[in-house]
Amino acid sequence: MCRWHGPTCEDCCFLCDGPRSTTLELLVGELLANAVRHSDSGRRPGGTVTLMVMEDDDGLWIEVADEGSPDLAIHVRPFDPDDDGGRGLWLVDRIASAWGVREAHERRVVWFHLARPPAHVRGPLPGDRAPAG
């Protein structure tokens, strides 16, 4: 059984509203499922997966860290409508404003960024200033 460290998807979704909340939940869920399914975190008893959520002025940064896998490189598979799986990273690649993979302290970290929509799309946030004019 894999152990969970970090917030839940529901804990993260307060950081955005409406469609962005659904998008955040979808992409986080895909990366978590991949970490459990394809890494040593899900293959061995006591494996761990960690979710980190950070917010800055540009948007949300999400990191999912797992125990890696020596036999599986991370890559985006071409979309195949007849395939039953393989869409997780394809979705991240198409929806996130940026994403990547890095090794850190014997763990594999897959991250993505969701850019904050412009104020005219999202409405004002606390601290936003009205345009000069």
Rank of each mutant, 00 (worst) to 15 (best):
L60Y: 04
I62M: 05
E67G: 10
D82W: 11
D82E: 15
D56Y: 09
D56K: 07
W61I: 09
P78E: 08
D71N: 10
V76H: 01
V64G: 04
A65D: 01
W61P: 00
D83G: 04
R77Q: 05
D71G: 15
D82Q: 12
V76P: 03
E55F: 02
I74G: 02
E67F: 11
R87T: 00
I62W: 01
F79R: 08
F79S: 04
P81F: 02
D66W: 04
D71S: 05
V53N: 10
D84N: 09
D80M: 01
F79T: 05
E67V: 13
W61E: 08
R77S: 00
E63W: 08
M52R: 14
L60C: 09
D57I: 13
P78K: 02
D71P: 07
V76Y: 02
P78T: 13
P78M: 04
D58Y: 10
G86Y: 00
G85W: 02
V53R: 07
D66T: 08
G86E: 01
I62S: 04
D56S: 09
A73Q: 14
R87S: 00
G68P: 11
D84M: 05
M52C: 02
A73L: 15
M54S: 08
D58T: 14
D56N: 14
H75N: 09
D58S: 13
M52H: 13
R87A: 00
E67I: 12
I62L: 08
G68M: 11
I74S: 09
D82F: 11
P81C: 04
E63I: 05
D66H: 03
A73M: 06
R77H: 03
D57T: 07
V76N: 01
E55I: 07
H75A: 15
L72F: 10
L72P: 01
D80L: 01
V53A: 15
G85C: 08
P78C: 08
I74L: 15
R87N: 06
D82V: 03
D58Q: 12
P81Q: 09
E63A: 06
P70G: 05
E67M: 13
W61N: 10
D82A: 09
M52P: 02
D71V: 12
D84G: 11
E67S: 08
E55Y: 12
D80N: 15
R77L: 00
H75W: 14
L72Y: 14
G85A: 11
L60A: 05
G59T: 02
W61L: 12
D82Y: 03
P81R: 11
I74N: 04
D56F: 06
D56L: 06
W61A: 08
G85D: 06
I74C: 10
R87M: 04
L60H: 06
A65S: 15
A65E: 12
A73K: 15
H75E: 08
D80K: 07
G86Q: 00
V64T: 07
G59H: 03
G86I: 00
E67D: 12
G68N: 06
E67L: 14
E67P: 09
M54L: 14
I62D: 01
D82K: 12
G85T: 06
P70A: 13
I74E: 03
D80C: 04
D71A: 14
S69D: 15
I62K: 11
G86S: 04
D80F: 02
E63K: 14
D57F: 09
A73S: 14
D66G: 07
L60V: 03
H75D: 12
S69V: 03
V76F: 02
A65C: 09
R87E: 03
I62Q: 08
M52Y: 13
M52I: 15
M54F: 12
